[in-house]
Amino acid sequence: MSIKDTAACKPEAGKLVPVVNLSKCEGKKDCVDVCPYDVFEMQAISDEAYRTLNLVGKLKTFVHGRQKAFAVRAEVCHACGLCVTACPEKAIKLVKAPSI
């Protein structure tokens, strides 16, 4: 875990998970910087995922070097909402975790 303020992150991990809308994400890394649980990583979008983007999403992705935020450790999210607030594109939302 990062040495970041976790006071606002009270819910039990795994109840809600972040979902990134890749068509909106411009890869600015704000979510990576604010998340106290290191849920996000910046990665290059795959060709397969790139093909699923809308036209605007493809343009944003091209301009920003195909880098996107991915919730690679969504299961450790405590749903504090810091990523949602920090994302300038409003590309992240918290949703109920799928039942396993």
Rank of each mutant, 00 (worst) to 15 (best):
M1G: 01
M1C: 04
M1Y: 02
M1D: 04
I3W: 10
I3R: 15
D5I: 01
D5L: 00
A7K: 12
A7R: 11
A8K: 07
C9V: 02
C9Y: 03
K10S: 08
K10F: 05
E12L: 11
E12P: 11
A13S: 13
G14L: 06
G14F: 00
G14Q: 08
G14E: 13
K15V: 15
K15W: 06
P18R: 13
P18F: 09
V19L: 10
V19G: 07
V19A: 11
V20I: 13
V20A: 12
N21G: 07
L22C: 05
L22Y: 01
K24V: 05
K24I: 06
E26F: 07
E26Y: 07
G27N: 10
K28P: 11
K28H: 09
K29H: 09
K29F: 08
V32N: 05
V32F: 10
D33A: 14
C35S: 09
C35V: 11
P36E: 05
Y37H: 14
D38M: 03
D38Y: 03
V39C: 10
F40H: 03
M42I: 12
M42G: 13
A44R: 00
I45R: 01
I45V: 12
I45Y: 02
I45T: 02
D47H: 03
D47G: 12
D47E: 08
E48N: 05
A49N: 08
A49F: 07
R51N: 07
T52G: 07
T52Q: 15
T52K: 14
T52F: 04
L53G: 03
L53N: 00
L55W: 09
G57K: 00
G57D: 14
G57F: 01
K58N: 08
K58L: 01
K58Q: 15
L59Q: 09
L59D: 12
L59S: 08
K60N: 15
K60R: 15
K60C: 06
T61P: 04
V63F: 09
V63P: 08
V63K: 14
H64Y: 13
H64K: 06
H64F: 08
G65M: 11
G65E: 02
G65Y: 03
K68T: 05
A69R: 03
A69E: 06
E75H: 05
V76D: 00
C77R: 01
C77W: 06
H78M: 14
H78N: 07
A79V: 10
A79M: 11
L82V: 04
L82H: 02
C83G: 14
C83K: 09
V84M: 03
T85F: 08
T85H: 06
A86V: 05
C87W: 06
E89R: 12
E89W: 04
K90T: 05
A91T: 05
I92N: 10
L94F: 02
V95Y: 12
A97P: 03
A97I: 12
P98R: 09
P98S: 13
P98L: 11
P98C: 11
I100Y: 11
